[in-house]
Amino acid sequence: MAENDDVVPKYLQISGHIRALIERGELAPGAEVPSERELAARWKVARPTAAKALNTLRQQGIVRSRRGSGTYVAERPALLRESAPRYGTPAPESRSVTVLCAAVVEGPREVTDALVLPVSSSVIVRKTLWVGISGSVELTTCWYPGGFAGTAALLLESEVVPGGVARYLEAATGRAATVVRESAGARLATEDECRHLTLRHPAAVLVVRRTCSDAHGVPLEYRETVHPPGGWTMSHEYSASSAADFRR
């Protein structure tokens, strides 16, 4: 049993186990996933808990349900990214990085929810400013569970983590990010964001939120990256057969 099984919700343990089977190839695309009834019996949980585990995988696009048939591993990739997430990769030489903040604070509700922590838990916050030689700029704020302060002390240093945060966290905690969830939206920049991004207030910005979780579904990092107007675009390539809007 994993060391953190006592604190990880059961439905996340179940979904993480199924996801690991898929990633190892033990459940191939198109293969049937155990039913709610089978999962409830195998894991000794109530049916709603098993249903929540399967729904988590559906929301991640990892499995698909067929009415009256069952749940199956999704045929992948139905949706391809233009490029892989930049989680933890070293900064290119063409960009400078300034760590504006590195501290342990009381986590805002949005952050503790994303990291699956109790309300008002302590978290590590790191805020960095990235500036490219072309003038491109972005402001990134990352949050980590407060417990990492004892095992990953470099997160509290006002310096760039050598080799990138992802590699460092894996080496320091023995846990690697295997699942990345992203969402993007626009809002008005805060005064602090306008100051760092040299924008006139009010200004609209693009905000990309990302949660990185380990193989058990336990979040390792929650980050919010703020891009100024015209500084970033999101592109996707997908199969027309998998896009409902395309078939209308």
Results as ranks from 00 to 15, higher is better:
residue 85 P to H: 01
residue 78 A to M: 08
residue 77 P to D: 12
residue 66 R to V: 15
residue 80 L to G: 00
residue 89 T to L: 09
residue 49 T to G: 04
residue 77 P to Y: 06
residue 63 V to W: 11
residue 74 A to T: 15
residue 64 R to C: 04
residue 64 R to M: 10
residue 58 R to L: 12
residue 54 L to K: 06
residue 71 T to Y: 08
residue 56 T to S: 15
residue 67 R to V: 10
residue 53 A to K: 01
residue 81 R to Y: 13
residue 76 R to A: 09
residue 57 L to G: 09
residue 60 Q to F: 12
residue 72 Y to D: 08
residue 50 A to D: 11
residue 70 G to W: 00
residue 70 G to N: 04
residue 57 L to W: 12
residue 66 R to E: 15
residue 68 G to E: 05
residue 76 R to L: 10
residue 73 V to Q: 06
residue 85 P to Q: 09
residue 58 R to T: 10
residue 67 R to F: 12
residue 75 E to L: 11
residue 72 Y to C: 10
residue 79 L to A: 11
residue 73 V to C: 07
residue 54 L to V: 05
residue 78 A to N: 03
residue 58 R to K: 15
residue 84 A to H: 05
residue 75 E to N: 05
residue 52 K to H: 10
residue 76 R to S: 10
residue 52 K to Q: 10
residue 52 K to G: 00
residue 70 G to V: 08
residue 52 K to I: 04
residue 78 A to K: 05
residue 65 S to Y: 04
residue 53 A to N: 03
residue 51 A to M: 07
residue 47 R to Y: 08
residue 77 P to E: 15
residue 66 R to F: 14
residue 62 I to F: 14
residue 61 G to S: 11
residue 84 A to Y: 06
residue 57 L to R: 07
residue 59 Q to S: 13
residue 68 G to C: 09
residue 48 P to N: 03
residue 64 R to K: 14
residue 55 N to L: 12
residue 77 P to S: 13
residue 65 S to Q: 15
residue 50 A to E: 03
residue 60 Q to I: 00
residue 88 G to D: 02
residue 60 Q to Y: 15
residue 67 R to C: 00
residue 63 V to G: 06
residue 75 E to T: 11
residue 89 T to P: 00
residue 87 Y to M: 04
residue 60 Q to N: 14
residue 66 R to D: 10
residue 56 T to H: 12
residue 80 L to I: 13
residue 72 Y to P: 10
residue 88 G to I: 08
residue 48 P to Y: 07
residue 50 A to R: 02
residue 74 A to D: 14
residue 80 L to Y: 09
residue 63 V to F: 08
residue 50 A to Q: 13
residue 56 T to I: 03
residue 73 V to H: 04
residue 72 Y to N: 06
residue 72 Y to G: 05
residue 88 G to Y: 01
residue 51 A to T: 12
residue 69 S to N: 02
residue 73 V to F: 02
residue 50 A to I: 04
residue 79 L to P: 00
residue 75 E to A: 13
residue 72 Y to A: 06
residue 67 R to Y: 05
residue 75 E to W: 03
residue 71 T to Q: 11
residue 58 R to G: 09
residue 82 E to G: 13
residue 51 A to S: 14
residue 89 T to N: 05
residue 57 L to S: 08
residue 55 N to T: 11
residue 59 Q to F: 05
residue 74 A to E: 15
residue 48 P to G: 07
residue 59 Q to A: 14
residue 80 L to S: 11
residue 48 P to V: 06
residue 47 R to L: 13
residue 73 V to I: 12
residue 78 A to H: 11
